[in-house]
């Protein structure tokens, strides 16, 4: 067994000119695990994800990530409007020089994983919001990454679609044991998907609570289970306390 974590974040801070956005954040994510980062919007949790994904550099501290590559799923689907769903999903492979045939074949597998096979020849404008997000997820999965970084992927979706996609994401994670790091502002979503919730303070982002979620399989009824509700309450309370403390600090200053 490999005991080294898939992602190791140590004392990471990020400073943009005079503003500190991330303040000495440390956590480990085990290989095959799933952690959710929860915090008020604009607190800097996306910056943490971007630094892990290599889109940004920490000012101090270090980040180690498992070899084999991480795939990023952005808040927006970011599909190329002139390509079909199939070719959008095949894009990461095509950019690595995989032949069109092989790339498309592997893209089809990935599209099947997110249950979009029927729609593979449509262009993004012909897809619904939920389908676009699935497509974006399929594109992230196509290169078989070890680590999946999700940046509020569901935030633009309606409640029903969101639940549906959360359930499928959980299923994907349970079946394929991909390491997932999820940024979200929905506490129930975090509790449903992750093994552990890290609650962040308002900017600069600091970890104020680490809350483990109940283990075991989740089905659709898990959303309303009492164990999950306790987790949601604990995380929400930690989040509200952090926001209140921040507001008090501002008033004093």
């Amino acid at each position: 067994m490999n005991d080294r974590p898939a992602i190791a974040v140590q004392e990471v801070s990020r400073q943009f000119r005079d503003t500190r956005v991330v303040d000495r954040v440390s956590f480990d994510l085990r290989s095959g695990g799933c952690i959710a980062l929860v915090g008020p919007s604009g607190c800097g949790k996306t910056t943490i994800l971007r630094m892990i994904g290599g889109l940004d550099e920490p000012s101090t501290g270090s980040i180690a990530i498992e070899e084999g590559g991480a795939a990023f799923v952005f808040q927006e689907p970011r599909l190329l409007p002139w390509l079909t769903l199939l070719d959008n999903v095949a894009l990461p492979l095509r950019l690595r020089g995989v032949s069109k045939r092989d790339a498309r074949a592997r893209a089809m597998d990935s599209i099947a994983m997110v249950k979009l096979s029927e729609a593979c020849h449509r262009t993004p404008t012909q897809l619904s919001g939920g389908m676009r997000m699935r497509a974006s997820l399929a594109r992230a999965l196509v290169a078989r990454p070890r680590v999946l970084l999700l940046d509020e992927p569901m935030s633009s979706l309606d409640e029903v679609t969101r639940h549906e996609l959360d359930e499928e994401l959980r299923e994907l994670w349970e079946r394929h044991r991909i390491t997932i790091l999820l940024v979200t502002h929905s506490v129930p979503e975090a509790a449903y998907l992750a093994e552990e919730i890290l609650v962040f303070s308002p900017r600069p982002a600091r970890i104020v609570a680490r809350i483990p979620t109940p283990s075991g399989n989740r089905d659709a009824s898990a959303w309303t289970s009492s164990a999950l509700n306790d987790t949601v309450r604990a995380a929400s309370e930690a989040l509200l306390a952090a926001i209140a403390a921040d507001a008090r600090g501002r008033k004093l200053a």
């Binding site: 889109l55 990023f72 927006e76 970011r78 190329l80 990461p92 950019l95």
Partner: peptide, 27 residues
């Protein structure tokens, strides 16, 4: 710029980015 960031993340070279992103965007 969001798509440019995506291409950057996928480590697409300059020529690939030109062919697959900039040129179609410029049509």
């Amino acid at each position: 710029p969001q798509l440019l960031e995506l291409f950057n993340l996928l480590r697409a070279g300059r020529v690939r980015t030109w062919w697959s992103l900039a040129l179609p965007s410029a049509v």
